[in-house]
Amino acid sequence: MSVDSINYSRSSALTNENALPSAAVDLSELGVMENNFISLMVAQIQNQDPTNPVDSSQFLQQYASMSQVKSMENMATLQQSSLVLADNLQTLTAAGLVGQEVSVNVESLELNDQPVNGQFTLDNYSGKTSLLLTDSNGTETVIQLGEQAAGKVAYTVDPVALGLKPGQYSIQAFNADDQRLTVEVNGLVKDVRVSNTGPVLNIAGAGSVPFYNIVEFGQRS
Rank of each mutant, 00 (worst) to 15 (best):
4 D>V: 09
4 D>N: 13
7 N>M: 10
9 S>D: 10
11 S>K: 09
12 S>Y: 11
14 L>F: 11
15 T>R: 08
19 A>M: 14
19 A>P: 05
25 V>I: 15
26 D>R: 05
27 L>Q: 10
28 S>R: 11
28 S>Q: 11
29 E>W: 00
29 E>M: 06
29 E>R: 07
32 V>L: 13
32 V>M: 11
33 M>E: 15
33 M>K: 13
34 E>W: 11
39 S>N: 11
41 M>A: 13
41 M>I: 15
45 I>R: 06
46 Q>I: 09
46 Q>E: 14
47 N>T: 10
49 D>W: 01
49 D>L: 01
50 P>W: 07
53 P>S: 02
53 P>G: 01
53 P>W: 01
59 F>D: 03
59 F>K: 05
61 Q>E: 09
61 Q>C: 01
62 Q>P: 01
64 A>E: 15
64 A>D: 15
66 M>I: 10
67 S>A: 08
67 S>P: 00
68 Q>A: 10
73 E>M: 10
79 Q>F: 03
83 L>M: 12
87 D>M: 09
87 D>W: 04
89 L>V: 02
94 A>E: 04
96 G>D: 14
97 L>H: 02
98 V>E: 12
98 V>Q: 11
98 V>S: 04
99 G>R: 02
100 Q>N: 05
104 V>A: 07
104 V>Q: 08
107 E>N: 00
108 S>W: 10
110 E>N: 15
110 E>P: 05
111 L>E: 04
115 P>Q: 12
117 N>S: 13
117 N>H: 11
122 L>E: 07
122 L>G: 00
123 D>E: 12
124 N>L: 09
126 S>W: 06
127 G>Q: 14
130 S>N: 13
137 N>P: 00
138 G>S: 03
144 Q>G: 04
144 Q>N: 13
146 G>E: 11
147 E>C: 00
148 Q>L: 06
148 Q>H: 03
149 A>K: 14
149 A>I: 03
150 A>S: 14
151 G>S: 03
153 V>Q: 08
157 V>C: 05
157 V>R: 05
159 P>D: 05
161 A>R: 06
163 G>C: 09
174 F>C: 07
174 F>T: 07
176 A>T: 11
176 A>F: 07
177 D>A: 15
177 D>M: 14
180 R>S: 09
181 L>F: 01
181 L>A: 00
185 V>R: 03
186 N>Q: 15
188 L>W: 01
190 K>W: 07
190 K>A: 14
191 D>S: 06
192 V>S: 11
193 R>K: 13
194 V>A: 15
196 N>P: 06
196 N>R: 12
196 N>T: 00
197 T>F: 11
198 G>I: 02
199 P>M: 06
199 P>T: 01
199 P>H: 02
204 A>R: 10
205 G>A: 02
208 S>G: 01
212 Y>H: 00
218 G>Y: 09
220 R>Y: 05
